[in-house]
Simulated assay, not measured.
Amino acid sequence: MRIFLIIIWGIMAFISVTGTLYIITNYEIQRWKDVARRRQGAYIRRVNQAEALLTIFTPGFPCLFLYLHLVDEGSAGIFYESIALLGSIGLMMYAWYVHIAYVKISPEGVEQRMWSARTTVYPFNAIDGIEYYEATSTDDQDLVSFYSKSGKLIAAFCPIIHKNYRLMAIVRFRIENERWPDMDNPSDIARVDALDSGPDTVPYFRGKEKVTGLADVDM
Score class of each variant (00 low, 15 high):
R2D: 07
I3R: 10
I3V: 07
L5N: 10
G10F: 05
G10T: 02
A13R: 00
I15W: 02
V17N: 02
T18N: 10
L21P: 03
Y22I: 09
I23E: 00
I23S: 02
I23C: 05
I24S: 08
I24F: 10
E28D: 06
I29A: 08
Q30L: 12
W32K: 06
W32G: 09
K33L: 15
K33W: 09
D34F: 08
A36F: 05
R37W: 09
R38C: 10
G41M: 06
G41Y: 02
R45G: 08
R45F: 05
R45N: 11
N48W: 12
A50G: 12
L53S: 10
L54C: 07
I56D: 01
F57P: 01
T58H: 04
P59N: 06
F61T: 00
F61C: 02
L64A: 13
L64Q: 00
L66N: 04
Y67C: 14
L68E: 07
H69P: 00
E73L: 05
E73K: 07
G74W: 04
G74A: 04
A76S: 13
A76T: 14
I78Q: 11
S82M: 12
L85C: 12
S88G: 09
I89W: 06
I89D: 02
L91F: 12
L91C: 07
Y94A: 03
W96I: 14
Y97W: 15
Y97Q: 12
V98G: 02
H99G: 03
Y102A: 07
Y102Q: 13
Y102C: 07
S106M: 10
P107S: 15
E111C: 10
Q112D: 10
W115F: 15
W115S: 14
W115A: 15
R118L: 13
T120R: 14
I130G: 01
Y132N: 10
Y132T: 05
E134A: 13
E134N: 04
T136S: 08
T138D: 13
D139A: 08
Q141G: 13
D142S: 11
L143M: 15
V144G: 00
S145Y: 06
Y147Q: 05
Y147I: 11
K149L: 09
G151Q: 07
A155N: 02
A155S: 15
A156T: 03
P159G: 06
P159C: 09
I161T: 15
I161Y: 15
H162I: 09
K163I: 14
K163T: 14
R166M: 13
L167A: 05
L167P: 00
R172H: 08
R172N: 06
F173Q: 01
E176T: 12
E176G: 06
N177F: 12
N177E: 14
E178D: 15
P181N: 04
P186R: 13
S187G: 01
S187V: 11
I189C: 11
I189P: 01
A190G: 05
A190F: 03
A190M: 11
V192D: 01
D196A: 05
S197D: 13
G198D: 10
P199D: 05
P199F: 09
P199T: 06
D200F: 03
D200C: 03
T201M: 09
Y204Q: 07
R206K: 14
K208I: 14
E209I: 14
E209M: 11
V211M: 07
T212V: 10
G213T: 07
A215V: 05
D218F: 00
